[in-house]
Each structure stands twice: as C-alpha cells, then as structure tokens.
Design a protein around this nucleic acid. Structure first.
Length: 891
RNA sequence: GGGGAUGUAGCUCAGUUGGCUAGAGCGCUUGACUGGCAGUCAAGAGGUCGUGGGUUCGAGUCCCAUCUUCUCCA
C-alpha cells in the first residue's frame, strides 16, 4: 500500500484534498499516446551497450539514438514510453548537488512520445497541451511555454516561428517566452542530430507569491516551484564534426517529461520528495534512523540524498550493472558511497542500512519495473556488502586522519596529504574537512584541488582521441550481418573515418554493405580477420565492434582504392574456438541451474578464443563437488552431440513462451534470435558451434566471487583443454622421470617432502652441535689482549653457522672480539666480525669498519652493524693476511 | 584506459637510511593454579615475507616484470 503523510500536522507543505497516484499518472500518459496510435514500449536498461560516448541512458532519447542517426528503423514510427534515466555527471547534472534542492535527481523517469519521420511540431504541441490541460487538468493559467529565439552565432538560426504560431493558438502570448540556445536548442552531443525545442513550465507557487512576482519572470530561473516539466524537441538538423549544421532528411519528435516533477504538480506538493514516489522511502528512512524529515535542514538533505541514491543504485543493479572500480560500475559505487556518507555524518548511521530500503522500492515500483521485484534479494545483498566495505574504508581513513593530525606541524593540513587520503584510501574530502574543523584544523583546499586537477589531466592525456567525420561512399547505405552463415564474402566499403588516440595511434573504422564479421557483443569478442582487394593486397581487420547499431571494422590502414569490391575473410580458427566457448557458456548456465538451483541467473560473461568467463547470481561458494558435477553435466551434453537449433526473427513473447530465459537488462527489440541446444534455450546474438560435439571437452579452471551474491566461473574448451592436458602431462612426465618413474608420484613427492623437513631439522641440529663443539674448541684459543677476549680464525662453517657460532659465544662470554673467515669455494671468501656490545659501547669498536677494511685482503667489501658485520670477496688466498691484521683493531 | 596504495604466522597488523639470528596482539596446543567455567601463569607449535628475475658481502626492505586486493581519475 502506498502511504502519504497527508494528515500529519508537521509534514511538509502537504495539503491537497485528493491526488492522483504516481502509478496512475504514468499509466495515463502511456494510454493517452496509445490512443494517438503510439506503440507502448518498456524502458530500456539504463546501462548502454553499444554507445561509447555514454555510460548510462541520460535522457529518454538515448535508447532510440540509432533511429535518429538513421542506423536502423523502429517497427513503429510512433512510440511512447517511460524511460529510466541516470544523470550523474557532465553538463546535465552534478552528483554533488543532488539532495540540496528538491527537484534534481540522479535517477528519474522520463515520459516520452516519439515520432520517427512521422508527425512533427503541430501534433507534438497540441497533444502535449491536450494531455496536460484536459487529461491531467492542470490549470492553464499556471503554464508557460518557451520557444527558440534563434541565434546570431556561426549557426545563424532563425526564431522558431512555426512553434510560436502553434502555441499562440493555445495559450495567451503573455505566457510564451523565447529562449536562447542554452535553454531552447537541444543537442545530443558534439556531433549528431539536434534541433530547437519548446519547453512547458509550470508555476506551483502560492497566490501571494504569484502576486508579488509574475510567473513568467521566473521561467528558467532555477526557481524550485516554477519548473520545466516537459521538453518537446524538434529534431531537424545534423551537427557535423566541423561544427556546421545540415538539414536532416527526416524530421523527428523527441519529447521528455520529468515524471517526478509531473507528480509534484499533480499532487499539489512543492517538492518532488513530497510525492508518493519518494514518501514511502523517506518514511522508511525516518523509521530506521529516528530522524524526522522536515525538522533539520542538514538531516533533510541527507534523507533526500539517500532516498534519491538508493533508487539509482537499485535500478542499476537490477539492470545488471554492479558496483565496481571502473567505468559505469564505479559511478554506481560512488553514488552509493555518497548516500552512506550522508547517513554516516548527518544521521549517525554507522552500520549498513540502505539495503533495507530496497524492500520499499520493490513494493512501490515493482509493478511498473519487474526487474526490481524480481531481483530484490540480490540487490539487497549487493548494497549491504558495498555499505560494509565502504564503512570499513571510513574506519581505516579515520585512523589515518588521526595520524596525520598527530604528526601535523601546523594547523593547516597540506593538500597532498588530504589528497592521498582521498585518492589512495577513498576517504571523502568533505568528511576530512569536517573532522579537521572539529579539531581546530583547516585543510589546504587549493593544494587539494591542484592535485586533483593533475590527476584528471593525467587520465585525460591517456585517453585523448579525436574522431573525424565519416567519409560517405554510398549514401543511405544499409549494412547486413551475414556472419551466422558465412565466414567470407564480397563486400563494398560504404563509409569510413579516422580516429587518432594516444594509445592506439591512427586507426581506421570501416563500414561495409554486408559483413561476415561478428561485432563484440553479448560478452563475445569481435571477429578478427582481413579483407583483400582485387589485386590481392591484404589488410588486417584487428577488431570488430558495434556502435549505435552499426558494425565497425578496425584497421591500421585504408585500401588503395576505396571503391573496389573486397573479399572479407574472418579468421576461422579464432571464430571456431570462440564459438566453442560461447556454446559452452549456454551449457554451463543450464548446468548451474540444474545443479545449484533456478535462482542462478547470468550476470555477465566474457567469451573469446582462449577461454570463457561466466558470472552468475548465487549466494555461496560453489563447492568442489558441485563444480565437478557441473563440469560432468556440461561434458555429458557435449557427449550427446546436441545439434544447434537456431530461430532468427522470433518475437520476444514467442521465445519466452518456448522456454527461453528472460533476461533483465536486455534492450527492447522487436524480434530476437533464440539458440537451442537440447534443453538449453537462450536469447542470444552470438556465434555457436553446429553441434555440441564440436566442443570436444569442457574444463573449469577457477571459481570465485566478484561481488556480494555474484560468483564467477572461468573455463576452457576444445584446443585450450588439449593444451591444458598436454602441459599437465608433460609436467607429470618430467616429475615421474625425476622420481625414477615412480608408480605413485604423489606418494613419492609426499615422502620427499617429509624427508626434506626431517633432514632440514637434522641439519639445523647438526649445525648447532657443530657450532657448539667449535665454540668449545675455540674457547681455549681465545687470547686475552688488553681486557678483550680476542680470536681470529678460519672455520669450516657456512654463513649461517658462523652467525650462530658467534651469537652462541656471545651468550656465554663477555668482551669478545671475534673474526671468522671461511671459504665456501675456491673463488669465494667470507669474513665475519662479532664484537660484544659492551666493547662497542665502551671502546667505540666498529665491526662494520673491521670487515670493510679486512675485506680488502680478500678483494671484497662488506659492512653491517657495529657489533656484527660480514664481508665477502673473491680471493680466499687473502684470508691468512686478513686474520693476521685483525689484531690491529684492538687498540 | 591512466595514477596511487597493498600483499609478512590461522586472524589483525608492526618491521624506520638494506644489516639488532623475522616480531606483537588475538587465536591454537600442552601444562599449572581454581571444586568446574571464566580467568591468570608457564611452555610450545605455526612463516616459500604474493610470484619470478636482478643489484649487493648481505634483501621482508632497493630495481624490473607479473599476479591479488583496495582506491581515485577518465
């Protein structure tokens, strides 16, 4: 049940007599556009798969980028959806600001309606108006709209007169404003489709406030209660790499309405956090932490931060993006840690608690987003473990910070110390600053920022690259993937471009009209191979990747004549081995579900020609027995020689009906490819063997944890297994040979080990005895000179023995001055000097100096402490001389 | 992808410019005291110092390579 604190007197500006639940608001939006002939599609996963410029879906249009770029066509020209978006960095949002206001978020839903070359401004504007004023019944007087005013920069764009005229029909002109490029011209990135936009703003202030300042003056002024709720983008241009604009052949509509803000407007509250989207979570936080939302500004910020961040983290994990230390996973980790930090500092929570909020989220959003409720347990586990590990890091950091404070020589702690704490140990700066100020210290902020900037520059320099415009050879070309059926084909180049990076140097990216090359995807590496021109010149294809639905081939150079017909040839060997590994992952997946249980779900995989890696959800270590059962299960499937049954272009529904595993984190597509080997059915775009018998054999190499609740298995197949066994065989053979072809090598080795330990002990004992005997003999040879027990002698002991001898004598005798010499071989000599400590202290003797100087006689050098030192040299012949001269040091 | 840190006894760690015969606490084993437990005392076991090279008379310590884990940046 949803719960909103309407009747509580202390709650925050809540006094609506009725409100529409957020779930209804979402449903009404989708229904409205469905009636306008739009197809409703589910939200794409937030983690992007084939877009190198983007880690996360950051706007409603991101999943449809390929359509706007013309790299593919949607099944329907009109779509509508509610898209999960994540904004954590870049121009759109800064993570560090979320929580301080009431209307910015990391994760939010974007309601959108889409036209791909279909309707344009007229429909987009009138439908938006109809939905807001007639369906949602928002008072027309509190709505304002903006249109693009044009620009007199290099683009020389005109006022968007068309939009202005359309609005004029619907709304009084004094509620229309014009806006500049920053507010009213939308660009996808530095390159690509773009166009003017028209925003709809809503004024939610009280009557008194409205009387004081007209709403129109507050549009786009960052006022918390005069906010943009809907942006209608009219895509009509394409921005080229050189910065110039060209008209798009097909015009598109891209709209995005912030769901949480819409809920705020419709539920009559003044903050997104007061809507029923956030209230249940906030209530739960209050219960767990004993804090009251609305009572204390700092605690309110902390509560908002946590309420916001838990959503972002939970949805990411649900979409398959686990916290990690690189890339998208790192962003998720940072978000979660920020939430922990605020809980730690302002709500005094020193134990994991954020994971407990997942239950609320699941209950509230599970219906619209089944990926949350379906993986609740996993999400909780992952978050709890992350919380724990960060709290550990904080503990460690606090200790380090104490040390820094103790050893500080001024009241200002230097920037590089604080930076080290942050950079190496992950201790947040703001916490450092807080603790320092509590103890009467300050920190050198400038020094810290300088260090941070240096680090950023380093990273940037390492990943710097420039991308040129595509050179188009064939306009409106399509590209067909034919690699499931053939490994070589005659192809034409349709476009190419040059990319320069520090790491790789100059690389060319080529697109063909058809290609047998499989692009990296679904965990499988891209194909390698080559293409040949009619004259027989060969160019290697180093890698194949997919970008916004285009298959790109990477080469080091361009062909001489780009318009030739080429023969593209995939490296067959690599492809075969890769296929073995890929099919094996399917069989492994099936085996794991069979052996461990159906809770096992794929959480990632990496398949290349050498090996395979498979990550899956499972709560405990897989035992050795389970592993061997799994291995045997897979090998049994291989032995059955199951044929590949492939169905292309089946509908998702049909595939799932047939028993294919439904995977969370898959992007919506109209049709899928189903791969069946016996009982294993998976939706998969990868390449597979024709028959499981081709795999020959499957061998697990390792099992381990990658995150809380996620295990990883690494395995090999086919040739790699052969290599593995060959290596093992060779080693075993060699071992046996060394053991005189013992029949039971394991026992033999064990026996050797036991004997070895016993012998070692014996040797030690014997050496001790020898030393003791020697010391007995030697005692008699001690000369008393000037109150010193002196001896310089050659002994037959190794370095350790001499050491033992010297220290043993040291225990029973006083005032010793010993010099021992030994010659381990005809080319090596060693001197050792031991002087009782009392002599060192009273007379200033220095054993180091003694051996250094006597070392000259044996052509060597040495040193040590002042009471014990050693020297080595190459001339045993000098030993007598060295011993004779030892007396010199007694003076 | 780039930078920093880390790896020493079963666990948590110390080990200062290379050289005080690799240490501490907890845990473990045995024994003693106490009617038993807790506890105290005594003795003891336990270490390829991540791995592989190198420099040096001498490397846990310095250099190179490699792996693990943590962390920051992109």
């Amino acid at each position: 049940m949803l719960y909103l604190k309407i009747n509580e007197p202390n709650s925050f500006n809540l006094k609506p007599s009725f409100f529409m639940k957020s779930q209804e608001i979402r449903a009404q939006f989708l229904d409205f556009f469905k009636e306008k002939a739009h197809t409703i599609v589910p939200s794409a996963p937030m983690v992007t798969k084939d877009d190198p410029t983007l880690l996360f879906v950051n706007s409603g249009m991101a999943p449809f980028k390929e359509f706007f770029l013309g790299n593919g066509k949607p099944k329907s020209n009109r779509l509508t959806d509610s898209q999960k978006c994540l904004r954590v960095s870049g121009k759109h949002n800064d993570l560090e600001e979320v929580g301080y206001d009431t209307y910015h978020h990391t994760l939010f839903e974007m309601l959108g309606n889409w036209s791909f070359g279909d309707y344009f401004k007229k429909e987009a504007i009138s439908w938006a108006w109809e939905l807001l004023t007639e369906v949602y019944k928002i008072d027309k007087d509190i709505l304002y709209v903006s249109v693009f005013e044009g620009s007199d920069d290099a683009d020389k764009l005109p006022l968007d007169q068309e939009a202005y005229d359309l609005w004029k029909e619907l709304i009084p002109e004094d509620q229309i404003v014009t806006g500049n490029k920053k507010d009213n011209f939308w660009e996808m990135g530095e390159q690509g489709p773009c166009g003017p936009c028209s925003e709809i703003h809503v004024d939610l202030r009280s009557e008194e406030e409205k009387a004081k300042t007209p709403g129109i003056d507050l549009v786009n002024m960052d006022h918390p209660h005069v906010v943009e709720i809907w942006n209608l983008v009219f895509m009509q241009y394409n921005r080229k790499a050189n910065g110039s604009l060209e008209n798009l052949p097909h015009k598109h509509i891209d709209t995005g309405m912030g769901f949480e803000r819409l809920c705020m407007a419709l539920q009559g509250v003044k903050s997104n956090y007061d809507t029923d989207v956030f209230q249940p979570i906030i209530n739960r936080i209050e219960k767990i932490t004993d804090a009251t939302y609305g009572a204390n500004e700092q605690q309110d910020i902390a509560i908002r931060v946590i309420a916001d961040h838990v959503r972002a983290v939970a949805f990411s994990i649900a979409d398959g993006q686990l916290p990690s230390n690189t890339g998208a996973g790192y962003v998720i980790r940072r978000i979660l840690r920020r939430a922990v930090r605020y809980g730690f500092t302002f709500l005094n929570k020193k134990d994991p608690f954020i994971y407990q909020l997942v239950a609320v989220l699941s209950e509230q959003m599970g219906a619209a987003f089944p990926e949350i409720s379906g993986q609740k347990q996993l999400i909780e586990n992952v978050i709890r473990e992350e919380e724990k590990s960060f709290l550990r890091a904080l503990d460690q950091g606090l200790i380090l910070l104490d040390k820094i404070i103790e050893t500080a020589d001024s009241k200002e702690i230097s920037g590089d110390k604080v930076f080290e704490l942050y950079d190496t140990f992950g201790f947040p700066v703001d916490l450092t600053a807080l603790i320092l100020s509590e103890k009467g210290f300050t920190l050198d902020e400038k020094g810290f920022k300088d260090e941070l900037q240096k680090q950023k520059n380093r990273s940037k320099a390492a990943s710097e690259m420039s991308t040129e415009d595509w050179t188009i050879l064939v306009k409106e070309a399509t590209e067909e993937f034919i690699g499931y059926d053939t490994l070589s084909a005659d192809v034409k180049l349709t476009r190419y471009r040059k990319v320069v990076s520090k790491k790789e140097g100059e690389i060319f990216q080529l697109v063909f009209d058809a290609t047998p090359f499989y692009p990296e995807g679904g965990g499988q590496v891209g194909d390698k191979g080559s293409f040949v021109d009619p004259q027989g010149n060969l160019i290697a294809i180093l890698d194949t990747k997919k970008e916004n639905n285009v298959i790109i081939h990477f080469t080091k150079k361009l062909p001489k004549k780009v318009n030739d017909t080429f023969k593209a040839i995939v490296n067959e060997k690599l492809r075969e081995q890769t296929a073995c590994n890929h099919t094996a992952t399917h069989l492994l997946h099936e085996a794991l579900r069979e052996v461990l249980g159906v809770h096992v779900a794929q959480k990632g995989s990496a398949v290349n020609a050498n090996s395979l890696r498979f990550d899956f959800s499972h709560f405990s270590k897989v035992t050795a027995e389970e592993l061997s059962t799994v291995e045997a299960y897979v090998n049994a499937k291989i032995a059955l020689k199951l044929p590949l049954e492939e169905s292309r272009n089946v509908s998702m529904e049909k595939a799932i009906e047939d028993g294919a595993m439904a995977l969370f984190g898959e992007k919506y597509g109209d049709t899928v490819r189903a791969i069946k080997f016996g009982n294993s059915i998976e939706l998969c775009g990868g390449t597979h063997v024709k028959n499981t018998g081709d795999i020959w054999h499957f061998k697990i190499r390792s099992e381990g944890a990658v995150a809380a609740g996620i295990r990883r298995i690494e395995a090999i197949t086919n040739e790699a297994v052969k290599g593995f066994y060959d290596d093992n065989n060779r080693t075993l053979f060699q071992i046996k040979e060394l053991l005189n072809n013992a029949k039971a090598p394991v026992k033999a080795v064990q026996k050797l080990q036991d004997e070895n330990t016993a012998l070692q002990k014996q040797v030690e004992q014997l050496l001790r005895d020898k030393a003791k005997n020697l010391s007995g003999e030697i005692k008699n040879q001690l000369q008393e000179i000037n109150g010193v027990q002196f001896l310089a002698i050659k002994v037959d002991l190794d370095a350790n023995g001499i050491k033992t001898l010297a220290f043993d004598m040291g225990k029973t005798h006083q005032n010793l001055f010993l010099v021992f010499a030994t010659a381990p071989s005809s080319e090596k000599a060693m001197l050792t000097c031991y002087i009782s400590k009392e002599l060192v202290n009273e007379r200033g003797y220095d054993a180091g100096k003694v051996v250094r100087e006597l070392g000259k006689f044996i052509h060597g050098g040495g040193g040590g402490q002042n009471f014990f030192a050693t020297a080595g040299g190459k001339n045993p012949g000098g030993i007598p001389q060295a011993l004779e001269n030892a007396k010199e040091y007694l003076s």
